[in-house]
């Protein structure tokens, strides 16, 4: 579906009871400066709201920032909803503070990648481009 004329579309959001949005805003700005369209959907969102918005916006990547520790149930719910609504063409990427073993589990569940606090802006942009390219190849 992607051609060169269309910028990558990424939705950035925060799920649940987590008001720490400095990180997600910086990531949004980094992606903008890399020529990506970023739909900023705000914080305190529910998985239902985020999935509804991501489908309407037809984003390539749904980027979820989570610093609350509730990543396992919340990501699980997002992935279930995407499947339920026939929207597995949307790639989920996570960001935030999470233990190594959870990162491994989340990837098994279907999260394409997790970027943690030590990710550099270059790595973030490269990861987004990579997961979109992998998706288009599939």
């Amino acid at each position: 579906m992607k051609n060169a004329a269309a910028p990558i579309r990424v939705m950035m959001t925060k799920l649940g009871l987590d008001g720490h949005d400095r990180g997600v805003k910086i990531v949004a700005r980094v992606l903008r400066d890399a020529g990506i369209d970023v739909i900023y959907a705000g914080l305190h969102r529910s998985p239902e709201e985020v999935v509804t918005a991501a489908i309407q916006e037809d984003v390539d990547v749904l980027g979820v920032s989570l610093l609350s520790g509730a990543h396992m149930p919340l990501f699980g719910r997002v992935l279930d909803l995407l499947k339920e609504r026939n929207a597995l063409h949307i790639t989920v990427v996570g960001g935030g503070l999470m233990p190594d073993e959870d990162v491994a589990k989340l990837k098994e569940m279907g999260v394409a990648d997790i970027m943690r606090q030590d990710s550099t802006p270059e790595q973030i942009v490269a990861t987004i481009r990579r997961v979109v390219a992998e998706r288009s190849d599939a």
């Binding site: 910028p7 992606l31 903008r32 890399a34 990506i36 970023v38 739909i39 900023y40 705000g42 709201e49």
Partner: peptide, 18 residues
């Protein structure tokens, strides 16, 4: 400059998003 954007109108529309 970059051609990218931050589309933030949606956050003002949270009440009707569902």
């Amino acid at each position: 400059f970059s051609g990218g954007s931050i589309l933030g109108d949606r956050i003002r529309m949270a009440d009707i998003a569902m």
